[in-house]
Design a protein around this nucleic acid. Sequence first.
DNA 1: GTCTATAAGATGATAGAC
DNA 2: GTCTATCATCTTATAGAC
Lengths: 214, 214
Amino acid sequence: MGDRPNGSANGSGARSRLVAAATAAFAERGYHATTTRDIAARAGMSPAALYVHHSSKEELLFLISREGHHAALRVIREASPDDAEPFARLHATVRAFTLWHAEHHTAARVVQYEGAALSEEHRREIVQVRREIDRHMRDVIIAGVDQGVFAVPDVPGTTLALLSLAVDLARWYRDDGRRSAESVADLYADLAVRMVRADGQPVAPSVDSSKINC
Amino acid sequence: MGDRPNGSANGSGARSRLVAAATAAFAERGYHATTTRDIAARAGMSPAALYVHHSSKEELLFLISREGHHAALRVIREASPDDAEPFARLHATVRAFTLWHAEHHTAARVVQYEGAALSEEHRREIVQVRREIDRHMRDVIIAGVDQGVFAVPDVPGTTLALLSLAVDLARWYRDDGRRSAESVADLYADLAVRMVRADGQPVAPSVDSSKINC
DNA sequence: GTCTATAAGATGATAGAC
DNA sequence: GTCTATCATCTTATAGAC
């Protein structure tokens, strides 16, 4: 823990402050529209100070992207124990993935939309994590299909759709919007269950379909 | 028709060639990472020639964004006649919107992800069209709810989800990928029907859902 | 309408004082 | 570790010849 003046788990050091500043700037304006001067200023430093803590602007992007991808993978793994009942497991997985994108929509925006600016080497590392996220979601669906309780004609396509719903949150979600992170997560988890249920399957114990509002 | 050397419906003039070049460049690298030199070179011109036909790089973005938004609105309106049966109407609307995003994924990417780079005035104009797209999709859902054949607890949220599915195509769809535009459109139209159907409603929809009582 | 040349300013990153 | 000053390059856009 004493390798650096501030441990990497400590968010108060200059290094972490720069990562936070870069996250805010990249999310707000995009990687290419963000200048190193902008990042340094948000962190309360001169432009040169950035390079004492990080080797380049791209390295900052990589750190944000890597941490965000690992966090997203972590939350869906923790929400999806192998022995859970398929509907509950799908519900929990989609809910957790959506909730992460809503609550961390600033980081999520960088994670989902700025990957093209990564170096070739860094992108390869990120793609591995993305594949694991995709595989996990697909496995959750496959478990329900194998147990005969999901009716899913196109498993990879439905996987893609469920991931897309949450990913797109990074584009439109706002802290000052009308929807809470929890309410969107509940909604998308409900929609996920609706997507996979067979014809006679009720949508969920918690949802009263007679309460129709606009 | 003779106001300009090349009418605006003609895609062969220098002006249209620059719009096409800018669309490809913005989609591939993003607005801010694209230089006016890139655009001019793709159109086979010198950097200065761009300014003979367009007043700025931002104007090119606006032309692409405006045309794309109007095209997307047009396709869903044409797919959604007011008197159609609700399930068929929803299916056709989601199918058309998804198909447009897949077949025009290059323009769609600019339309959906580069709006932040528009000038304040241009953004206001684009936002109006986006509101009309949202309203149209919502109205298609409301029609099914009002007729008692859809069971939708959260209409604005479900509207958002359906739009999100297609929008996110602009992020991941590739011409050389495994899925055809039609197959994704069919899949998402099917998922849309699954999202709104009541517990006893079969997935395969079409003409015979007028017997559901509510 | 197209070109070459260039203005005017911004940008990522570095040098060297403290 | 932070600063000021600066380099080398790139960027949008314009000027003026043809």
